[in-house]
Amino acid sequence: MSAPKFELIAAIRNTIDKLKKGSPYQWGHMGSCNCGNLAQELIHLSKAEIHRFAMEKSGDWNDQLIDYCPDSGYPMDLMISKMLEKGLTINELRHLEKLSDPKILKNIPFPKRDHLKKNKLSDVLLYFETWLEMLENQWLEESVKLDAIMLQKNNLDKVFA
């Protein structure tokens, strides 16, 4: 799992909130599917813009992630690059589209984890919420470690002053 970045955590939280409030969800639409909804929040494009850019190449999100080339000049590849810059990995995006990341799934109780449907909004929300909780916990753990390092450094500075 990628190192959590605050901007990614906020985008996932906003995606969840928008979907719960009725934002368009359609798994077969590149701008309003699992990745498309997150892309709207993360790179601030509309579902129509995302879909239009995606249609310049062939295939769904998974196909385009396989064919991703940061130097191609295709708008879809530029969008993916922007998402990677915000803290995602190619594998996380591929798993998001299919709700298939083993690290996230192991945090979803049985029997639900074995029956997630990639095009069912309630399952998408469960996946996003589980992922969000994992990223927030990781963020907190890293913050505590950083605080401990800074505290130790400050104490050493006092000793050697």
Rank of each mutant, 00 (worst) to 15 (best):
Y68Q: 02
H44S: 15
I108G: 04
M79R: 00
L96R: 00
P111G: 11
E41P: 00
D17H: 13
I104M: 05
E129W: 06
K21D: 11
K98Q: 13
L125K: 09
L84V: 01
L88G: 01
N37W: 00
E129G: 11
R94D: 04
L132F: 10
K118H: 13
M30Q: 09
K47N: 09
K112F: 05
E97Q: 15
I108W: 01
G28K: 10
D63P: 01
Y68P: 01
E92L: 05
H115P: 01
D67Q: 13
K47T: 13
K98V: 14
K86T: 08
L126D: 08
E136W: 03
K118S: 14
A48Q: 14
K18A: 13
Q40A: 01
P24W: 03
G22L: 04
G31V: 00
P109T: 12
I50A: 07
R113A: 11
K86M: 12
N91R: 12
M76S: 14
I104V: 15
S81H: 08
C35S: 11
H115Q: 14
D114L: 12
S32G: 05
E56G: 14
K82F: 04
N119I: 08
S72Y: 06
L19H: 13
L132S: 04
L99V: 05
L126T: 13
D60R: 08
L93S: 08
S72A: 09
S122E: 12
W27V: 10
S81C: 04
F128K: 03
S46I: 01
L93D: 03
L99F: 04
K106E: 15
K18V: 06
E136A: 04
L132K: 03
N137G: 09
L19P: 00
Y74C: 11
L65Y: 11
N62Y: 11
D63E: 15
L45Y: 14
Y25R: 11
L88W: 09
M134P: 02
L126E: 09
L45H: 07
K18W: 10
I80G: 01
